[in-house]
């Protein structure tokens, strides 16, 4: 089986033999690993001014970085971050990746359209709208979902893209930004619509959010994503409990503690990796990953250490 097929099997919670699939939402350490600036860190303000042949060279260079990352770290999936982030450039990048790798990798891009936690400047205005203009907020939520579905229809017609990662963050370490009641009103119906539309088009859906999801996890699972990503142990999310309660409904991705990769001792990293594997793998429906991504500033050797354990112990009989 190609890595893509194994990734899809895990998303569909089918049993696997061999190594449990792995990927990361983002691997930012491309300068250290490959001597290349990560595509998301590039400033293409003069993109429109470039000759087409120069744009194409940049696209090829960015595609090569995604492929090199997948090959070196044995990712089964590539999460593209097109830069510039347009539908046209997404399609061009997909085509290049498919041309270079065929169907070897599962390809996904951002696809969320629901309200995430606003930043510190916007959160006051958001809270005021929630209290003063709830119907206006719902209209905006619907418009965002409708626009995302229209974009997805273009990708579906073109082909090559396998799925979407929905990366709106909903939760802090302590719990959700919105109360479960507000979440049910302002997020869940729109997330369910979006997920259903993506599924109807044949796409796979991975719902990511940081933080303590437990107060809203019933709602998240009820929107029927193929997978839940992050399962953040820093926020107290226990993959064993999530697996026990929802393992028959949704694939689980993540749970290796990012903070430990950053600052923990090797034995602490090892324990986090082993806990995720031990509790995520049984019965299938698990994709090995950190609880966020390989972010800027993380020691590469910690990620490589995490993978060493996965290679030895993340194997189905």
């Amino acid at each position: 089986m190609q890595p893509r097929e194994r990734f899809i099997a895990a998303l569909e919670r089918r049993p696997l033999t061999g190594r449990v699939p792995h990927f990361e939402l983002v691997f930012f350490l491309t300068m250290e690993a490959f001597g290349k600036v990560h595509p998301s860190h590039r400033n293409y303000s003069q993109w429109g001014q470039m000759e087409e042949k120069e744009r194409e060279l940049h696209r090829l260079d960015m595609a090569d970085i995604y492929i090199a990352t997948a090959e070196r770290f044995e990712h089964s999936a590539i999460f593209i971050h097109p830069n510039p982030d347009t539908v046209e450039e997404t399609i061009r990048l997909i085509d290049i990746l498919r041309e270079k790798t065929g169907d070897r990798y599962f390809l996904m891009r951002h696809g969320d359209a629901t309200f995430s936690i606003p930043d510190g400047k916007e959160m006051f205005a958001f809270a005021e709208r929630l209290a003063d203009d709830p119907e206006g907020l719902k209209r905006e939520a619907q418009q965002k979902v409708d626009a995302a579905i229209r974009r997805a229809e273009v990708y579906a017609r073109h082909g090559g893209l396998d799925g979407f990662a929905l990366c709106a963050d909903y939760c802090f370490n302590s719990g959700p930004f919105l109360s479960p009641r507000h979440f049910a009103e302002f997020i869940t119906p729109y997330l369910a619509q979006l997920t259903a539309a993506y599924r109807d088009m044949g796409f796979y859906v991975i719902k990511h959010t940081d933080g303590n999801i437990m107060p809203i996890i019933d709602q998240l699972v009820a929107t029927k994503p193929h997978a839940l990503h992050s399962l953040d142990p820093q926020a107290g999310v226990d993959i064993a409990e999530v697996k026990r309660r929802y393992g028959d409904q949704v694939c689980l991705i993540g749970n290796v503690n990012c903070a430990l990769l950053d600052t923990g001792a090797p034995e602490e990293i090892a324990e986090s990796v082993r806990y995720a594997l031990r509790n995520g793998m049984p019965g299938g429906g698990y994709i090995f990953s950190t609880s966020n991504c390989i972010y800027t500033g993380m020691p590469l050797k910690s990620y490589e250490f995490m993978l060493e354990i996965w290679r030895r112990e993340g194997v189905y009989a």
Binding site: M123, A127, E128, A131, G175, L178, S179
Partner: peptide
Amino acid sequence: ANECFVPELLISAR
């Protein structure tokens, strides 16, 4: 106590 959440807290602050 997780009986109120950030938006409610901000509206009370308002």
